[in-house]
Amino acid sequence: MGNAQSTVRILAPISFLYDFAAQQYGIFSSPTMLDIHNKNLAAFSPQPFFIAGFFFPQQLFQLAYLWKLWRREGTSAERETMEKYAWAYSLGNFCIGTWMFFWNSNNLETSNIFVIINTVSQLSYIATLLPPLDTRSTSNVLTHIVAKSFAGIGVLDLLHNTSAAYYRGVPPSSLVQVATGVGFAAAASVSDWMLGGCLVYDLVALSMGQEGGWSRLLGGYAVATAGIVGLRNWLYPKWKSQREGAYSRVGDEDA
């Protein structure tokens, strides 16, 4: 166990540096990642500056998470939460860093493999392994922010890369338009405000990257998704509190 903890404390920062270096390569190489983006516009191509706007604050949260992970701050439970996620975090960084080289080589089919691995692993982790949010714990909150922002932007990456790789220049069919709205609504209905906020951001980025009726429809989906996330995170805590309160009262009566 001690060896695994030492390994992941080293692996996670290395994965961050690898991904960061790959992103710099993507920005300053020729062609740039933006050149490839513009060359392969599709129905799920976002406004590229929204991606940059997302990653800048996320990098800061990652650095804070890595600092606490390296220093092993917090209780044993907090350290365990950070260290367990660090494996999925490292996998994600290595995948996205490697993705960049294939993307900038205009080999979008291969780059999509790494996007799929990252998105599926991040969504699977937050759905099955991430402990509940504890706002009293900075380490727990940082882990949730990093994990859910990775998963949230991963959804956009998957839609973008898949459409650019296989459906470049193809307008969205009626089925795709309906499935997009249903999919985001379903995801929003089970998301907390962190992941839900990322989903809304994804839709806004897509809307700003498209034109005409499809752009307006995506904008409408963003508003609807925000409403679902807001209602879910406002109503569910109240319902849960009422249920727990009712259970306690029954327990008192039995006593």
Rank of each mutant, 00 (worst) to 15 (best):
residue 27 I to L: 13
residue 29 S to W: 03
residue 221 Y to L: 14
residue 181 G to P: 09
residue 210 Q to E: 09
residue 175 L to K: 06
residue 16 F to I: 11
residue 70 W to Q: 08
residue 62 Q to S: 06
residue 201 Y to K: 00
residue 151 A to R: 02
residue 247 Y to D: 09
residue 196 G to L: 09
residue 153 I to C: 01
residue 111 S to I: 06
residue 5 Q to K: 15
residue 134 D to S: 04
residue 12 A to L: 10
residue 13 P to W: 14
residue 64 A to W: 11
residue 32 T to V: 14
residue 163 S to N: 06
residue 245 G to S: 13
residue 231 L to M: 11
residue 211 E to N: 14
residue 48 P to L: 06
residue 102 F to K: 09
residue 209 G to W: 00
residue 44 F to V: 09
residue 35 D to S: 10
residue 199 L to N: 05
residue 84 K to Y: 03
residue 2 G to Q: 15
residue 122 Q to F: 14
residue 179 A to N: 10
residue 42 A to K: 04
residue 186 A to Q: 12
residue 244 E to H: 09
residue 184 F to D: 02
residue 213 G to Y: 14
residue 109 E to F: 12
residue 45 S to D: 02
residue 245 G to I: 02
residue 122 Q to N: 05
residue 122 Q to S: 02
residue 86 A to R: 00
residue 96 I to G: 03
residue 46 P to G: 07
residue 133 L to I: 15
residue 206 L to M: 02
residue 1 M to V: 10
residue 245 G to W: 09
residue 134 D to V: 11
residue 234 W to R: 07
residue 161 N to W: 06
residue 119 T to S: 14
residue 58 Q to I: 07
residue 253 E to T: 15
residue 170 V to T: 12
residue 121 S to G: 03
residue 159 L to I: 06
residue 241 S to C: 04
residue 253 E to M: 15
residue 226 A to D: 03
residue 119 T to Y: 08
residue 186 A to N: 04
residue 188 A to T: 04
residue 242 Q to Y: 06
residue 213 G to V: 14
residue 125 Y to L: 07
residue 25 Y to H: 13
residue 196 G to F: 09
residue 198 C to E: 08
residue 165 A to C: 10
residue 106 N to Y: 03
residue 67 W to F: 08
residue 163 S to M: 13
residue 72 R to F: 02
residue 86 A to L: 03
residue 156 L to G: 01
residue 162 T to F: 15
residue 153 I to N: 01
residue 44 F to Y: 15
residue 73 E to F: 03
residue 255 A to N: 15
residue 42 A to L: 08
residue 84 K to C: 05
residue 116 I to D: 02
residue 249 R to V: 04
residue 80 E to G: 09
residue 183 G to N: 04
residue 106 N to I: 01
residue 181 G to F: 00
residue 228 I to S: 03
residue 228 I to M: 03
residue 24 Q to D: 07
residue 188 A to H: 09
residue 44 F to I: 08
residue 236 Y to Q: 12
residue 140 N to Y: 12
residue 72 R to G: 11
residue 112 N to Q: 15
residue 25 Y to K: 03
residue 130 L to H: 04
residue 190 V to F: 13
residue 160 H to C: 07
residue 108 L to W: 00
residue 187 A to P: 05
residue 224 A to D: 00
residue 69 L to H: 05
residue 49 F to P: 05
residue 153 I to S: 06
residue 226 A to Y: 06
residue 121 S to K: 04
residue 152 G to E: 00
residue 41 L to E: 07
residue 31 P to W: 13
residue 5 Q to T: 15
residue 118 N to M: 12
residue 143 T to C: 13
residue 41 L to S: 03
residue 95 C to K: 00
residue 199 L to E: 02
